[in-house]
């Protein structure tokens, strides 16, 4: 049994179909990339995995538990597309708040805040109000907030938007490190070069899962030299 099972998931917002019969399995400890243009349904799908959106049809199980479940929420770290930070509060206060929601003890929380802020390179800005942060800094702080309670599963919606290449590289290195600790990571992205860094990819377009496999497999299957080409091929455009 895979860690994450998405079974026959369909969803519509009003008349607009966003996801159509998605079936997907993700193994534990993998970095899974959900790749696709904006409007493909990536956010809808990850929100369903997080449990903040119920699919019209189908179901999702994680670790043999049906989503949504409070147990799963305890082991999941979620980073939304919007930064989801309280602008008036400092980074530290934001993290303290999230930490106390997860029920972290005071001393543990203090230590975790230091750790995650170091991870995202924001330690010097710990006491700065978030409204003084740049876009990229806010993104990193959101990531820090998702890492705070040491989740087993990280669900990250476009985590590297607005982050410069150097830092993006560092963040991906951190993902690898987290993976080595056995953490499963799901990342959505529309940046093709990030796709190569994932263990596994799901190509999503117009609410349909077009292809799934490791970057190498996908390239081989479609006789393509890059993921971008794979995308064009499965999308029906010959290159």
């Amino acid at each position: 049994m895979s860690f994450i099972n998405v079974k026959h998931v369909s969803h519509a917002f009003g008349k607009e179909k966003v996801l159509e019969d998605i079936n997907l399995t993700i193994e534990e400890g993998k970095i899974f990339g959900l790749l696709g243009p904006s409007g493909a349904g990536k956010t809808t799908l990850v929100n369903m995995m997080v449990g903040i959106l119920s699919p019209d049809q189908g179901e999702i199980t994680i670790d043999s538990t049906k989503v949504p479940s409070f147990d799963l929420m305890n082991i999941t770290g979620y980073m939304a597309q919007s930064d989801a930070l309280y602008q008036e509060l400092s980074a530290k206060e934001n993290l303290e708040f999230m930490g106390s929601i997860y029920g972290l003890k005071k001393s543990e929380l203090k230590e975790r805040i230091q750790h995650v802020m170091k991870t995202v390179n924001l330690l010097p800005h710990l006491d700065k109000p978030v409204e003084q942060y740049s876009g990229g800094m806010k993104r990193r702080l959101s990531l820090a907030a998702a890492l705070l309670h040491q989740p087993k599963l990280l669900i990250l919606d476009e985590p590297t938007v607005g982050i410069d290449p150097v830092l993006r590289k560092e963040i991906w290195e951190e993902f690898r490190e987290l993976q080595q600790q056995g953490i499963t990571i799901i990342v959505t992205t529309h940046v093709m070069d990030e796709a190569d860094k994932c263990d596994e990819l799901g190509l999503l377009r117009d609410g349909q899962l077009m292809a799934k496999g490791s970057p190498g497999e996908l390239k081989e299957q479609h006789h393509a030299s890059s993921i971008e080409e794979v995308f064009l091929t499965v999308g029906g455009v010959e290159s």
């Binding site: 997080v50 449990g51 929420m73 919007s82 930070l85 309280y86 999230m98």
Partner: peptide
Amino acid sequence: QGTLAKLLST
């Protein structure tokens, strides 16, 4: 600002 969604993911 998305904090409600974030909170509901906890």
